[in-house]
């Protein structure tokens, strides 16, 4: 290589490089590196917050699961309670019905007894009335014949049996 005057290129390289460096550092590298750095930070922040959101989501899911489980238990309990209650009610009503029936039966029995007694009394009355009328009739008949009258009375009396 043919060496040329060294001062020319050395002088200009120094001047141009230094000016170029200062201008670039101020107007280009500073904003570019700043922007790149802040963007990287924002990306990191975004990633971190995404991770946080993911964790929160996980927590929420766990919570939901727990709540669901609790709800299921509660539902089961409620169902059980309801079943018990139903059984209780059924049992209670059965008892009551039985009681009521019993009572009704008792009442019916008492009424029947009363009726029966009344009927018996009536019957007695009727029988006695009937007997009297029979007796009357018989008497009327038999009394035409004294002997037979007596005979009849005796026979009838022998037949009649008070209950």
């Amino acid at each position: 290589m043919q060496l040329t005057s060294p001062e020319s290129l050395i002088f200009w390289t120094t001047i141009i490089f230094i000016v170029f460096f200062i201008l670039l550092a101020k107007f280009a590298w500073k904003p570019i590196l700043g922007a790149v750095k802040s963007r990287e930070e924002s990306i990191n922040n975004a990633l971190a917050s995404a991770e946080a959101a993911r964790l929160e989501m996980q927590n929420l899911t766990a919570d939901n699961e727990r709540i669901l489980k609790e709800a299921r238990v509660e539902r089961d309990a409620m169902l059980k309670e309801a079943r018990e209650m139903r059984e209780q009610i059924i049992a209670d009503s059965k008892n009551e019905a039985q009681e009521q029936g019993q009572k009704l039966i008792e009442q019916a029995k008492a009424a029947i007894e009363n009726e029966k007694n009344a009927a018996m009394a009536e019957l007695k009355l009727q029988v006695s009335t009937l007997s009297l009328s029979i007796a009357e009739k018989l008497l009327k008949e038999e009394l035409s014949n004294k002997e037979s009258q007596t005979k009849l009375v005796e026979k009838m009396l022998g037949d009649v049996k008070l209950n």
Binding site: F20, L23, L24, F27, A28, W29, K30, P31, I32, A35
Partner: peptide, 11 residues
């Protein structure tokens, strides 16, 4: 310089 100045501005 103009190349990188343009880049810096674009940010």
């Amino acid at each position: 310089f103009f190349l990188f100045f343009a880049v810096a501005r674009s940010y």
